[in-house]
């Protein structure tokens, strides 16, 4: 066991990788949450066209492996665009596009579950006061749906963070990619990957602490609020 060697030699690389992992995860989750909400509302629309678009989107994303999607976004689409105009895509952009499209599809279904869990009486009460459908959605249904969704949302965030490692395959310089490069020349597999594992564990622990805090904060029933 030679952890001190890994700490001395590999840590600088791994820290760089960790930063890329964190940035790509955060940006993708943020974009994915917006895409997810949009797709969710489209899927719950009373009109056929948005419903169909959302359905096809979710079907394709969930029905294909993310690695294949990443290859298509990184290698395939630039080739297609290059037929018309000079174009380059870097691995970070491709990674963020893939991850956010992916998270968006799953988050859409998570939101939809949350919305369906809000009792019908809540929106009936809002509509009976004269609020429009949109106002009812924003002020009454979505805040409650969000609360119901938190456990599944966090689950999806964790999956998205860990899925960044798949993007090593398109050359995204994240933790696993950096580790691979390092062990390729030094062969200290065990120690390096143990450190990588601990780094993931650390990020996800932070996420869990934050989500527990938010969940407590949003637990309005049986809690007095100072204002």
């Amino acid at each position: 066991m030679d952890f001190s060697r890994v700490f001395n030699e590999a840590m600088p690389f791994l820290w760089d990788g960790l930063r890329v992992t964190a940035i790509v995860s955060i940006v993708s989750i943020a974009i994915g949450m917006v895409i997810g909400l949009l797709i969710c509302l489209m899927k719950m629309s009373k009109f056929v066209v948005p419903r169909a678009i959302a359905g096809v989107y979710i079907w394709i994303i969930r029905g294909t492996p993310m690695l294949v999607q990443a290859f298509i976004v990184f290698y395939g689409i630039p080739l297609l665009i290059q037929l018309f105009t000079p174009f380059r895509m870097d691995a970070t952009t491709a990674g963020i596009i893939t991850l956010s499209l992916n998270a968006g599809a799953y988050l859409a279904e998570i939101y939809r579950g949350g919305i369906m869990a809000v009792p019908k009486g809540q929106s009936e009460a809002a509509r009976s006061l004269g609020l429009s459908k949109a106002q009812t959605m924003w002020k009454v249904v979505l805040p409650q749906a969000f609360k119901f969704s938190i456990p599944s949302l966090v689950n999806q965030f964790i999956i998205t963070i860990k899925d960044t490692s798949i993007l090593a395959m398109i050359g995204l310089p994240e933790i696993v990619n950096k580790a691979k490069t390092y062990v390729g020349s030094t062969y200290v597999y065990f120690e390096t990957y143990m450190v990588v594992a601990v780094m993931y564990l650390a990020i996800i622990s932070v996420l869990m602490i934050i989500s527990n805090y938010i969940e407590k904060k949003l637990k309005y029933e049986g809690k007095k609020k100072q204002s």
Partner: peptide, 15 residues
């Protein structure tokens, strides 16, 4: 038109 429901239906996310 005000309406009062059997199950109250107060907005659970608001005081």
């Amino acid at each position: 038109i005000g309406m009062v429901f059997q199950q109250f239906n107060l907005f659970a996310n608001m005081n």
